[in-house]
């Protein structure tokens, strides 16, 4: 089985994540989209490791680490959102644009 199918799937996943990141205004939705993109990266890693000729389990190990990192990231991100929501009663990015030049 060629990795092409996996790579295509990962691309699709990345695209969906990117679209969500750019399109959605809710910070939570954006975080979910970001996770989708990260998942796409994980898929890519697993698929491409099979091409290197090394032990394919290396890629799976990396993917597992990525899942851990993503979980930690989500935890930090969500706690930040809670803090933001407490401060400004909103998690809409359009209202959170104070850092203008």
């Amino acid at each position: 089985m060629s990795p092409a199918l996996y790579l295509g799937f990962a691309t699709l996943l990345f695209g969906v994540g990117l679209y969500g990141l750019l399109q959605r205004r809710s910070l939570v939705a954006m975080l979910i989209s970001l996770e989708l993109m990260l998942a796409a990266v994980s898929v890519n890693v697993v698929a491409l490791t099979t091409l290197t000729g090394h032990d394919a389990s290396m890629g799976q190990v990396v993917a597992l680490i990525l899942v851990g990192v993503a979980a930690a990231e989500t935890a930090i991100g969500l706690s930040l959102f809670v803090a933001i929501h407490r401060a400004s009663h909103s998690i809409d990015v359009e209202t959170l644009s104070e850092l203008k030049g």
Binding site: L22, L96, G101
Partner: peptide, 8 residues
């Protein structure tokens, strides 16, 4: 103007 504050 580039620095509009929109993360996206």
């Amino acid at each position: 103007m580039v620095q509009n504050g929109f993360v996206q």
